[in-house]
Design a protein around this nucleic acid. Structure first.
Lengths: 335, 335
DNA sequence: CTGAAAGCGCTAACAC
DNA sequence: GTGTTAGCGCTTTCAG
């Protein structure tokens, strides 16, 4: 394969070939511009011949709009759920002709990513990460970047946030378990610093208390299968009797707990002990797990986030909004 | 939260505040430029005060380098493996101060994505998708975009490709199973159009034949858990006896097969029938599956891809290369 | 509807 | 080492 050298065509090249001015070429590629159909056709033909596409960088520079959205992903946490969120957001944004620039939140946190995002003139940022300094965000808001948080509430920030109603969802789980006759509970909550975990634990505790049930303790560990295994081991090491039901912070934790129970006890999940998850990832429905779980309204979450963000970008007067969506209890064999 | 209006600072603003020329500001932000330490310090201080960061769009426009890499993802296929690949690539590229622009291959195929990528002046493209028209790619290569394929061999294209040695890996799996005494085989291969599936099936058939073993058939379906379930059902419907061993196209397929076996037969996986996977996704090691599988050298694959691509971008004389890396057989209970 | 001209923010010669 | 100047490719007034 030889590598031939040929320069990329620009709008002037197209203009010359089509016998029009460079400005007309620009108009031919800007929907809504006033240009005669005849000229437009000539230009489009010339452009095709030269494989011309407008340079998005130059366009962004002059028009102050890049059609790029940054997505900031939490590193490695809850990969099954967030990879679906990412895929869904990507599809929605791609359909709206927006580019997605992906950022992974590294150890240092978001503070180092924001200046980089700032360099690239993105129109908006979708954050799936927590622990952000409100002042920092507001500084970028002032430069015209719109922010949206998915599944995170961040106070005092000029940004939208679209969440599952985590607290209510946790209450519903406890209610369901109590109605099935379970009396003693424990919670293996995941990462205690994540706002999702905080909200879910709050709902768990509130509901336990209001129904006069017995809480054997809330255990924090990673939002992962391994975190579930560790969490269950910590629970056993407490020396108390095991609870009737374990409410887990997400499905991966629940899978870890089930793995641990299968390996280190004789209990039958769903019969001797109830386990619930959160998210409804694919593996939750695999027959070996059959996890009763709180499904997050993933599509709705993503759709709301994207439409809200784009409408704020397109109409700068639109105010950010805070929305929450109820989860949906999916009942299988584990509880 | 009020939204104050304040303009983003540019290099001229910084220059004025620091009392130097605009060009000096540019130099202060370009490593390797000749600038006096005193001036640099003044400039950096002024920049900090104004929250200045260089505009990457303008920079890309003039220097013809965007520091952006496009990653094209296959839509929805093998999400567990490719989401890890994406995460790994992202981390590596982010560490090299490269931006990642993500594209999902939609129904129409890659042909529609390439012109969009072209607009954004990316320096390179990493493709995890197949079915590409070589001529089309070469057209973009001529504009100075470097291409790399991960886990795909595409002939007649001026691009690198870094693959697991899929054919050899499949042969190794069959060899391992044969050495354990298995005589009759079937293969539930995944998507027959994917080059990975084609290579693995070729290795499977070659090894079966060379060892004089019995192949009950190769079945194609999706590279998913459901595809595995379907594949196993098709196998049963053939009416023949079931094989001693089923070689699956990837771990998700294998998990589907195990799910189907658990639900619809009395066979014990790993005792009555051997099942193997490919990839070594997280779930492969969960105790309920304990999948014997061919681990793909994910980190090596990604590292080679990134270093190769960046070196070609940084030194335009570097030729693309074709590399393949051996897989690693991970033995668990399923076979 | 169309062309000429200005300029988005930056880098890279080029002089000094 | 530093300032001046000329564009990168585009959109957008402004005349006509």
């Amino acid at each position: 394969m030889e590598k031939m050298e040929r320069k990329k065509a620009n709008s002037l090249d197209v203009a010359k070939l089509a016998g029009v001015s460079q400005a007309s070429v620009s108009r031919a590629f800007s929907p809504g511009s006033s240009i005669s159909p005849a000229n437009k056709e000539k230009i489009l033909k010339a452009a095709k011949q030269l494989n011309y596409v407008p340079n998005a960088m130059a366009r962004a520079l002059i028009s102050n709009q890049s059609n790029c959205i940054a997505i900031v992903q939490p590193i490695a946490s809850n990969p099954y759920f967030y990879s679906k969120v990412l895929q869904e957001l990507l599809n929605l944004l791609q359909a709206e002709n927006q580019r997605v620039v992906l950022f992974s939140q590294d150890d240092k946190g978001v503070d180092d990513i924001l200046p980089i995002i700032d360099q690239y003139q993105v129109d908006g940022v979708i954050m799936a990460s927590a622990n952000i300094d409100a002042k920092l965000i507001n500084q970028y808001v002032n430069r015209g970047i719109e922010f949206s948080f998915i599944n995170r509430h961040v106070p005092n920030v000029y940004a939208s946030s679209i969440c599952t109603d985590n607290k209510q969802a946790a209450k519903d789980i406890v209610k369901y378990l109590a109605n099935k006759g379970h009396k003693t509970f424990a919670c293996i909550a995941g990462d205690g610093k994540a706002s999702t975990a905080i909200d879910r634990v709050a709902g768990y505790r509130e509901q336990i208390e209001s129904m006069g049930l017995c809480d054997l303790g809330v255990i924090y560990d990673a939002f992962s299968v391994e975190g579930g295994v560790n969490g269950f081991n910590k629970l056993k090491e407490q020396g108390k009797a095991l609870p009737d039901a374990i409410v887990c912070g997400n499905d991966e934790v629940a899978i870890g707990v089930i793995n641990a129970i299968t390996q280190s006890t004789k209990l039958i999940v769903g019969k001797d002990i109830a386990i619930t998850g959160f998210d409804d990832i694919d593996a939750a429905s695999w027959p070996t797990y059959g996890l009763t779980t709180m499904r997050q309204p993933l599509k709705a979450l993503c759709e709301l986030t994207v439409t809200d963000l784009l409408s704020r970008i397109r109409n700068q007067d639109t105010e950010p909004s805070q929305k929450s969506i109820p989860g949906e209890l999916v009942i299988r064999q584990s509880a």
